[in-house]
């Protein structure tokens, strides 16, 4: 898997209320959620400005706070190809794998990418390339079980197989 897009830079401790404010949680419609993606963040007009395929790059503890899966759903449906961060909050990390939003942990990439840089993420090689500055960063390897989940097509596909529903 390879992803290429423009970087949108966010700071530390971006919480799920910033990603998708609770006032919009009276629906679980992905398109509706996506239309408010990052609305209470430092880039409130993110959804108007971003292009399909763009990459979110953030500092530590991205996705902290609530367990709402609406957060990765909003990001994915908005068309963000993947999220690169110094670290992720644990429920967000778990949700992203379960529902199929590619995320990559890389403190070096988080530090070495600025807003507007052109980014390429090579998931198989475990590398993030900053095409603007021509720098390359390695990403933390994905644990074996998570790879199994991804290969199966997410937790539900994996569960279907296990429960004999497939």
């Amino acid at each position: 898997m390879k992803f290429k897009g423009t970087a949108w830079k966010f700071g530390a401790d971006v919480d799920t209320d910033a990603i998708i404010p609770a006032r919009y949680l009276n629906t679980s419609d992905p398109d509706e959620l996506a239309s408010h993606c990052m609305e209470d963040s430092t880039t409130p007009d993110f959804i108007k400005k971003m292009k399909r395929g763009d990459v979110i790059v953030a500092e530590k503890n991205f996705g902290c706070g609530s367990s709402r899966e609406h957060a990765p759903i909003a990001i994915k449906t908005a068309g963000v190809s993947c999220v690169v961060a110094k670290s992720f909050a644990r429920i967000f990390y778990r949700n992203a794998f379960n529902m199929g939003l590619p995320i990559f942990e890389s403190p070096e990439a988080a530090a070495g990418i600025s807003e507007g840089d052109e980014i390429e993420v090579d998931a198989d090689a475990g590398v993030v390339r900053n095409l603007t500055t021509e720098k390359e960063f390695s990403v933390a390897p994905v644990p074996a079980f998570m790879q199994e989940l991804l290969a199966a097509g997410g937790l539900m596909a994996y569960t279907k197989k296990k429960a004999g529903l497939a």
Binding site: S67, R68, E69, I91, R94, N95, N98, M99, P143, F145, G154, L155, M156, Y158, T159, K162, A163, L165
Partner: peptide, 20 residues
Amino acid sequence: TGVGSTDVAAAMITGEAWFK
């Protein structure tokens, strides 16, 4: 521990969940 909706969907079927 808190998890997401997909975890709950899977656990409603299997009665199990994965943890590190």
